[in-house]
Design a protein around this nucleic acid. Structure first.
Lengths: 332, 332
DNA sequence: TTGAAAGCGGTACCAG
DNA sequence: CTGGTACCGCTTTCAA
């Protein structure tokens, strides 16, 4: 049997409502008494009963994150970041790897104060919506769902900016290496941004402008680059569509003894700190994870306070972080 | 305001204790009434208040999993499996990616019925132990901690068995490619198993018997293999120390146009279903994840019922699963 | 400042 | 079988 405020009250010779107030740092209790009680509580090893607290206060100070597909690592950096932000807000985060529906049910039971959903192409059914009505939820991912607010990233602009940046450094032969499976709208958006910039800048699109890796792994970038290098024309700059692909690109370039950025500039999409710790610290575009994380968490916090407080879609603007992988070029 | 059993009681014209019984399928209530109440509850959209239930019943029917390092993917398959097993036992699983200590505190608040800890080289402090005394916990990982029961894997035997298996197929030139950072006791154990078998079988250890990749990634296996192939002597069989490294090995072999298993046999450590879906379905040794998962969950379930019911260390025996990557060889 | 008491939403025991 | 009722541990009026 755990020790309760009643035990403390008895020991301290006060009523248990006073103990409750003291422990909650209420101004309604004399400082002396407060100090005495708090001290005593600690001595006695008091631990508040959360269930009881929740029963009356209807708040759990925890938010639930639904992540149905842990096997996709890409998001773990973001999740780690979100966890930190949540902790800073003195909330706790619990994670569920079940289906959205099952997770939602569980979170409801736990009375979490808010939910973050990582969609992963999941379309929600009516019955899932039912639950959502009551509990503040935001989602990260593809917009177009009108159920709850979405935090989105302007992928198109990221690639658009990347091209302009390289162009301004004098690059004209730019190759974009990425995965363009039409199933992933984010990849398509990036591609669109690339094309748009090319068009505006009057750069010619040819066989070497874009390489479809057909995969998102390190190795896919590696192979694509190796093949690219065997062809007659070598680009002066390469853009990698993800962290993994970009590291494959670097690897291939290094093996071919091509200097970065002296001979070829490389720019990567994604804005995670790891970009800076690659063999060659990579100049990159993308919304910094840290920013995505704080936007998600802040939006949710607002939503918890006021249901109508945030817009249904927030699109974050990518930033370009210069490191050492891109340089001016003289050649056209 | 949510609807409660009292609302239902009023509506049904019975006392609310009867409603409680009916909803819990108690035999103490007449079937007719029970049916009526249950139906009514559903109509009214009744959802039990978990906090209230827990306050009195002291059970949450959920178990918490502490996974401080989501960035290491290796474990996600196992975690997915564990989650399934837990669900089968009609419990729920919540995950925390905080430090063991912070996670434990949170789980205590939620009154989870049990905890699973993935250690990751973490040594626990006294203050953490304090919490552990009360709540049933098992851990997966390195033994040698006397705080709570550990589910362990006999890594040594896995490699030992692997060598014998290949030996019996006629292989004499066997290379083990893996990461032998002395910081990871599991890797060292595997290495020991390999050496032991070599010794028993009187196989000569030389420069090509073991290759230290210095990393656990795909690419590390790839590079190591490529280098190995450039040397004069080619092994007749290669053992990869993990799923990722093994796939790197396969990749390198394929690129070098070496046929598996005709020219070189490959055997991988790890026993996850993905082994079978590699470019070349890999024969592998290891404890099947599914088995690790069920052992962990079952042990915890027992522990919840009876604190003293399970041994402090359970070492699981690896199994060898034959697929198509190993073949008989004639050469010595 | 402090204490008494009324719930929060259930469960479980006891009496009828 | 059904209803009454005493808690579970804590927060929060409301009086004193």
């Amino acid at each position: 049997m755990n020790i309760t405020i009643k035990d403390i009250a008895r020991e301290a010779g006060v009523s248990y409502s006073t103990v409750s107030k003291a422990l909650n740092d209420s101004p309604l209790v004399k400082p002396d008494t407060k100090i005495k009680i708090v001290k005593l509580a600690k001595e006695m090893g008091y631990e508040p009963n959360f269930a009881a607290q929740r029963l009356v206060s209807k708040q759990s100070k925890t938010i639930g994150l639904i992540w149905p597909s842990i096997e996709r690592v890409a998001l773990s950096t973001l999740i780690t970041n979100i966890n930190e932000k949540i902790t800073e807000n003195s909330y706790s985060m619990i994670l569920s790897i079940n289906s959205i529906k099952a997770s939602l049910e569980m979170f409801r039971r736990f009375q979490v104060d808010g939910v973050i959903v990582f969609e992963e192409n999941n379309t929600l059914t009516k019955s899932e919506l039912h639950h959502l009505t009551s509990i503040p939820t935001v989602s990260y991912g593809v917009p177009g769902n009108d159920v709850f607010p979405v935090i989105d990233v302007n992928w198109q602009q990221a690639l658009y900016d990347a091209v302009y940046y390289l162009y301004n450094l004098g690059h004209r032969k730019i190759t974009y290496i990425g995965d363009f499976s039409p199933t992933d709208p984010r990849q398509m958006e990036k591609y669109d941004g690339f094309k748009l910039a090319f068009k505006e800048l009057n750069l010619p699109m040819n066989d070497h402008s874009v390489i479809n890796t057909g995969g998102l792994d390190w190795y896919d970038g590696y192979v694509a680059t190796t093949r690219l290098l065997q062809s007659s024309t070598r680009p002066s700059a390469i853009i990698g569509s993800s962290y993994d692909i970009s590291s494959g690109i670097i690897r291939a370039l290094r093996e071919a003894k091509i200097l970065i950025p002296k001979e070829v500039s490389v720019l990567g999409y994604d804005n995670i700190p790891q970009m800076g710790t690659l063999e060659t610290p990579l100049t990159s575009v993308g919304v910094p994870v840290e920013k995505i994380a704080s936007t998600i968490v802040q939006s949710l916090m607002k939503l918890i306070v006021d249901k109508e407080s945030i817009p249904s879609v927030q699109t974050l603007t990518p930033e370009l972080t210069e490191r050492i992988s891109c340089a001016q070029t003289i050649g056209k």
